[in-house]
Design a protein around this nucleic acid. Sequence first.
DNA 1: GACTGTGAAGCCATTCACAGCT
DNA 2: AGCTGTGAATGGCTTCACAGTC
Lengths: 213, 213
Amino acid sequence: MKTLRVPEATVTRLSIYSRFLERLDRNGVTTVSSGEIAEGVGVSPAQVRKDLAYFGEFGTRGVGYNVKDLLRYTLKILGLDQKWPLILVGAGNLGFALCTYKGFNDRGFSIVAVFDNDLMKIGKMIGHLEVLPMEKMPEVIEKHNVRIGIIAVPPRAAQDVAEYMVKNGLEAILNFAPITLNLPEKIEVRNVDLSVKLEILTFNLGFKAAQNL
Amino acid sequence: MKTLRVPEATVTRLSIYSRFLERLDRNGVTTVSSGEIAEGVGVSPAQVRKDLAYFGEFGTRGVGYNVKDLLRYTLKILGLDQKWPLILVGAGNLGFALCTYKGFNDRGFSIVAVFDNDLMKIGKMIGHLEVLPMEKMPEVIEKHNVRIGIIAVPPRAAQDVAEYMVKNGLEAILNFAPITLNLPEKIEVRNVDLSVKLEILTFNLGFKAAQNL
DNA sequence: GACTGTGAAGCCATTCACAGCT
DNA sequence: AGCTGTGAATGGCTTCACAGTC
């Protein structure tokens, strides 16, 4: 393997480039330069080229990149040349929103089951999915070959849910609870914290004020 | 000012330390060391100390940090010693979830109005808030002194909404639409992309497989 | 002339290691 | 003895600048 370590920031941007390319493709654009991609997603042209260089040579000097081809490559690299079945735990408002979130489907993700431990919620329908009790998780994972789980439960329940997921063989977790999960190293965990970014904004607004900028 | 530039990663972690400290405080813990914080949130002890050092000396050598004090300091630094009124545009499922998200309230944020341009949604209630037409935005911003807006609309509408927010005086935007907003530099923008983190997971699962790890 | 691919340089964040305090 | 605060060292990401190609 030539590519031993890819910065996570590069993967993040690749995901963003990929969606930008989808838009270009929808608009009938066939060729794009690193400068145009850079402009479109707010990074430097060199950054775009360097990011892509981790994975190969996709462009033509003097010309740029073929949109359709580059889109296909980026999807392939991100592992999105296949459908990914997901399970979700937490049938609250956030869980509901995630279940119906179009952005997941657009990218090849599909939530195949929703779980909750609240008897009031079990049996209810979210779209075409029935909320299931936690005990059903093993068979769902087995049946659909699920590898990734999403946690959308209150903070105090998140650690237990995560451990249950790991016990049942999940390899990766997307955690929406604002808490740090403590799990075996081999489990891939990423957190989406809805208020951290908001706090960066309030910090910056306050910081600017303090500097009279 | 001693602190001229604070890395954004530091601010992010500060937000996380802050919530960890809230938990310790709730549990009656009075003193904590950098090592314990590090353990609790998954970073190195040196990192914790370095992060805090950007803002002052909050600890006692040989002892550690006073939980209540450090909590207060972190909140102050993040600008959370005041209530922040927010407006939200997009009364879809995600907007609904954000409106009712407890994590915002816990941190001093409160959504004071929800807007949409869909006549089907205007007038509906989300909790105690009525969905308002976009034209009402100026007066709401004025009345509540709103400085931050949240965008939870489909990608194709996001840029227009953002520009409208800026035109009406908002200084910062939290964007949930999976698209890069193009706005004046002085506007603080942060994106929460629900599927980027998921794609990092699929990338990593694929990457590991490719390396037979 | 235009644009990619890339080694080298520059810059920034993290880690180290220890002096300083309790 | 224990833990913080911090300059120095390290490591890694980004930018620069240019050779290579069309």
